[in-house]
Amino acid sequence: MGLSDSEILMPASGADAVRAFGDGRDVTVFAGGTILMPMIAYRRYPQRARTLMLGRAGLNQISADGNVAVGAMTTLAAIAGSGVEPLAAAARDVADPEIRAQATLGGNLCAPPSRQGPRGDLQAALLAARAEVRCAVAGRERIEPIDEFLAGLDAEPRLVLGVELERPRRAAYSSQRRPHAHSYAVMAVACAELADGVRVAAAGVAKRAVRLRSVERALADGAAAEQASAGALDGLEPQDDALASSWYRREVLPVLVRRAITQLGGG
């Protein structure tokens, strides 16, 4: 089956998108296209019977009155300018203005790790902020914690409609990049202080972003940044990939954790 055989669906609303997605088994979801278009160019497009293009489905609103709700098709540029931290800082860290104006929350959230390294620049920020993902499967909407969403992403296709979160009281974000605008961040650490304590999450140390629970516990016990960051690697075995070695990640992760905690002002 060639690329031109995939039936193109362009729903005009979120409800239409949910209907068109169905159980998602034969659907490639196309959001901003910054990941899928290169896959087409390289003949690696995840070809399925139907391609669901969400560009005209709406789903691109941010509301930040009280709790925060961000639509799946909200661009990273809009998130970067939203003032909702640590999401805004994580979005600002991605690529350049042209890419940020096209790439979307939903695409970023669902991006599988690439052959070369991890993707999903917003995952750590969403995890730290205890975001919940509103999604649809087989015509039914549901909302699930981001940890569960990420863990189940490979097993069951879901159409992301947006994320919702309590606006953190304070937040911080620290990342290690390579020099060029378009390198994925090697690692990133996000912290968010919520009503019941500080959550800390890291991207780039596992296939998808993970919470750093030892660090969270240390902070809850009143540890300072230096002391809390010592447990950053507990239970983690960072990978080697094209961006950095496992050794490098082990050396740098505690530094990023310390910086993020210091930036949060709680260390």
Binding site: I8, G33, M37, E98, Q102
Partner: peptide
Amino acid sequence: GEPRRSCLLPLAA
């Protein structure tokens, strides 16, 4: 009027 990568934009969009 906004700069975009033409390699990343499908005709349909």
